[in-house]
Design a binder for these strands. Structure first.
Lengths: 145, 145
DNA sequence: CTCCAGTTGTTGCAATTACAACAAAATACT
DNA sequence: AGTATTTTGTTGTAATTGCAACAACTGGAG
């Protein structure tokens, strides 16, 4: 219980919220301008592509994405409709759903990355020194706990 | 045009996105747990309360909130439905709408603040040193441009 | 004055997200 | 085994957000 936060702490918080929203808006706009799907699609595909066998259980995917389960379910519906992923049964758990990237899914992930990479460079990395990035990383690490 | 960002820069970006989302989720959850409306409501009320006469033109409010105009229009519908704001005509511009906080709006803003303040203290300020906050502020400032 | 481009704010409609309830299967407990 | 509890994932429905078109108005050029 803290009595009263200093004004500059509050200002920094406000700025964090604001800047972050602004950054994401710009990145999303860049993706859209390139005719690409929103960032969450990429997040899902990336998590799957990173796995050695290109598959993850639903709940594990959910845990990594910090997405409410019902939202993920519908997001996957949309990805499946585009043949970017498929749902398979899990061997030892009949409830489970295994999410698998398709070849098209891998291809799309590869296609999004350069655009996303460029956006990160433009809106984020290009504005900071190496030392800034390092320091920011340390600070974010503390916030994560 | 940057050739290829270093891995740790990309990791820091990813962490920024993740941590920020996580922080906001927690803050929103705290507000909801206290039976309070979402953060945007507070943002709108705060902008208005800060004005000496408790009013702002629609477009100015929009510019400060980084909200798409149609979204703000509907958000204001909801606030108006709870009698937290009212819309008034602007003297010298018949198109314009002036958004005015009501007494109930001011009261709600005052009621939200302690909860929001506590959430900032818990999830943000409490995890960082004063120097961290200062450094973070500087970095965010660079990103803003 | 008259027309035309730009601004301001709202609205119809589609897509996405949130909440609540649910079915099905696994796990724990007696 | 038999029953309650928890986990896992989906779905119906309502709220919110995004997109495009719109009406009303302003301000400036001819």
């Amino acid at each position: 219980m803290i009595d009263r936060l200093p004004d500059d702490t509050i200002r920094t918080w406000a700025r964090l919220v604001r800047v972050q929203q602004d950054l994401l808006d710009h990145v999303e706009a860049d993706l859209k301008a390139a005719g690409l799907p929103p960032l969450v699609w990429y997040d899902v595909l990336l998590e799957l592509v990173r796995e050695p066998d290109g598959r993850l259980r639903y709940r594990d995917l959910q845990a990594r994405l910090l997405l409410a389960k019902h939202n993920l379910s519908r997001l996957l519906d949309r990805l499946a409709a585009e043949d970017l992923i498929t749902r398979e049964a899990v061997a030892d758990d009949a409830r489970g759903a295994c999410i698998v990237v398709t070849a098209a899914g891998r291809q799309l992930q590869k296609r999004i990355w350069p655009v996303y990479h460029q956006a990160i460079a433009t809106h984020f990395a290009g504005k900071l020194s190496g030392a800034d990035v390092k320091k920011l990383g340390d600070i974010l690490d503390k916030l994560r706990r």
